[in-house]
Design a protein around this nucleic acid. Structure first.
Length: 333
DNA sequence: TACGCGTGGGC
DNA sequence: TGCCCAAGCGT
């Protein structure tokens, strides 16, 4: 119930408190400038107000941002948004919350029902983990989503980003929320490069912490605002610098928007992989309400070795339950 | 650290 | 058309 809706923020966005003296050793690529903590603090304070003001004006009205979503709504949305676009999440989110309005409601269901309701959002292990997290919340936290970062982090499917996001968005806590959007905004606005490194670095975490406003409420607004800026304006492709509230201070803009240097950005293959086979197998099981015969699964992929490997993988992951007589179903337990 | 893990839309 | 991308996590 503590979801911060649209509080005033214009208060003290105090100077950032950097814990580390200075990132003396910049990453191998030399992409990060050797900023002092003091310089970072100054630039951070200059960024907060324009970005938060922009957010107040342009933030999307998303269901998990409404007060009635609660911490559970925020948490469900964060699971679904891990690598899946907002527009595809919206309908599934609404159905999910209507069916399981509290963690205990989901925990009382078979995990296979979570997998089925997940539909075509992709990465269905997230559904299993969300079910597991709901069970853990019911058992260990009396059915309430914890607000403590460490307790969130201990739940299945919740990593560094999601723990910070739930604590910040649902409870207004002060955490560096470092997702792909924020990393891109920082890479451009502060570091002056087009894209962040492939994997999150210690330097990025330091920077995110240094840029975090001291005031808790302001920090939570900043987290949501910087993320939204990356999602709507400072996008990976076709960025809209003309709409950006900090374009005049953006290091990348000031440097003439240089092209990406360094290692190629990671791209994932899909066609012909086990992943594609797993997707087809699970699609059959989702649509069948009951055990499925081996023969029905055999039809989704012609190559028997890969097909068997994919099915074994699904079973090993707990997404599929093998039954006697070569039949399979979504897991009941 | 790098990789495996789904799915669909935009260009 | 392929390729790139989308609020990561676990190992």
């Amino acid at each position: 119930m503590t979801a911060p809706t649209k509080p005033s923020h214009t208060g003290s966005a105090g100077p950032a408190s950097a814990d580390a003296p200075a990132p003396a050793t910049s990453p191998a690529s030399a992409s990060a400038p050797a900023e002092t903590a003091a310089e970072t603090a100054v630039s951070g304070a200059l960024l907060h107000s324009p970005v938060i003001d922009w957010f107040d004006e342009h933030a999307r009205d998303l269901p998990w941002r409404r007060p009635e979503a609660g911490a559970w709504g925020v948490m469900v949305s964060e699971f679904m948004l891990q690598q899946t676009p907002v527009n595809r999440v919206l309908p599934v989110y609404e159905q999910w919350l209507a069916r399981w309005p509290r963690p205990a409601d989901l925990a009382a269901e078979a995990p296979g029902e979570a997998v089925r309701a997940w539909g075509r959002l992709g990465y269905p292990r997230r559904a299993l983990r969300l079910h597991g997290a709901a069970a853990a919340i019911t058992e260990r936290h009396g059915g309430d989503v914890p607000s403590d970062h460490a307790q969130l982090l201990a739940l299945p499917g919740i990593g560094e980003y999601t723990a910070a996001a739930v604590a910040s968005f649902a409870y207004g806590r002060r955490h560096a929320v470092l997702d792909t959007n924020v990393r891109r905004v920082f890479a451009r606005a502060v570091t002056g490069v087009r894209f962040p490194p492939n994997a999150t670095t210690a330097a990025e975490r330091r920077l995110a912490r240094a840029l975090l406003p001291d005031d808790e409420r302001t920090a939570a607004r900043w987290a949501a605002a910087s993320m939204e800026l990356g999602a709507l304006v400072c996008t990976a492709k076709n960025e809209s610098c003309h709409r950006c509230p900090i374009a005049a201070r953006c290091a990348w803009q000031l440097a003439g928007k240089p092209e990406h240097e360094g290692p190629p950005r990671r791209t994932q293959t899909y066609a012909g992989t086990d992943r594609q086979v797993r997707g087809r197998l699970l699609a059959v099981l989702r649509e069948a309400h009951g055990p499925v015969a081996q023969a029905a699964l055999d039809r989704v992929w012609h190559e028997p070795v890969q097909r068997a490997r994919a099915l074994d993988g699904l079973v090993a992951d707990g997404l599929v339950e093998p039954l006697a007589g070569g039949r399979y179903r979504l897991p009941l337990t």
